[in-house]
């Protein structure tokens, strides 16, 4: 890994950390969700400061160069993240659906009750 790439990774990671912290401070991000965005750049910083880790992992996995290992790892982590987001979206979707249906049903029942009260 070139010094230039390592520097770039560190700079971008620090920026990401700073941006995430800002979003937490402004209450735009839940703590649960922020953990990933703290850990991910932290890991990149670690890999940049100690290039030996990537070199070692690349050798074991038979990846040509350490930088390719970093790409591979980042892509893998992002795919997992996207999938977990998709999962969460499905669950949110189901919850909204249930809520919408419940609101409509409860409104209907409330009106019915009112009508029977009036007729009494």
């Amino acid at each position: 890994m070139s010094v230039m790439l390592r520097t770039a990774l560190i700079v971008i990671s620090v920026l990401t950390l700073w941006y995430t912290a800002r979003k937490i401070r402004k209450s735009q991000l839940q703590i649960e969700d922020s953990i990933f965005w703290m850990a991910f750049p932290a890991a990149l910083v670690l890999l940049s400061v100690f290039p030996g880790i990537a070199a070692w992992a690349a050798k074991i996995l038979g990846v040509q160069s350490p930088v390719n290992f970093i790409f591979l790892a980042v892509i893998f982590i992002l795919i997992v993240k996207v999938f977990s987001l998709s999962l969460r979206l499905s669950q949110l979707d189901a919850k909204i659906r249930t809520l919408t249906q419940e609101i409509a049903i409860r409104e209907n029942l409330a009106q019915k009750q009112e009508k029977t009260k009036e007729s009494e």
């Binding site: 659906r97 919408t100 609101i103 409509a104 209907n108």
Partner: peptide, 16 residues
């Protein structure tokens, strides 16, 4: 009638 406050699509409406 049930008045769904947002559009859910056929599946969601039928399920309601």
């Amino acid at each position: 009638f049930l008045d769904l406050p947002v559009n859910l699509g056929l599946a969601g409406a039928f399920q309601a």
